[in-house]
Amino acid sequence: MLEVQIKKKLPHFLVDINLTVEDEILVLVGPSGSGKTTILNAIAGLDHPDDGRITLNGNIFFCDNEKPLPTQQRNIGYLFQDYALFPHMTVEKNIAYGVKKMNAIEAEKRIERLVNTLGINHLLSKYPHQISGGEKQRVALARALATEPSLLLLDEPLSALDSRTRLECQEELQRLHATWKTPFIIVTHDMQEAEKLGDKIIFLESGLITKTVDNRSGKMIC
């Protein structure tokens, strides 16, 4: 379970949110510049809140007066907008980048499984600039999941794709979540996508939560 309760001053407004995520898909919806990426970055440890508290399964990521846990030790997967694949490495190297050397055989099997599920077997020896947008998205997903993260953050994961690929990838994500069973946080500004993917949807505006909807029951929580 992920618990986030943070405050951070941004140039135009104050981000002040309080949310918990079980092993479910949480979708953050809001116009651009409403503080969505700031929240993801705070959870990932790439940026720190002014105060508050972030914990994942009892593990303290951030707490007011303590030194924040470095990104490297948080064991999260982060799918960046536009994917941020390493241009100088093949798809295979990209995916294997975060895998610890220690249990190589096990890791190899895991990657093989991932690659097969995502159907990117034929791309392994290619470089990122040689593959299409949808393929990049899958490679980036494989890369984020290859480290067996206990939390997956996805920043506008599907915005760069055409509508058909988009549909495929949405299903892909749901399937992955069903097998992975860790919290997913997806940031989007597309309402339809939010309704399709989310177990829970949180609406953000200027750094504040305007409403939270339990999408499976359709009930408004607050």
Partner: peptide, 8 residues
């Protein structure tokens, strides 16, 4: 940042 989230 991507490399960092992967534990590097």
């Amino acid at each position: 940042n991507a490399a960092r989230t992967m534990g590097a």
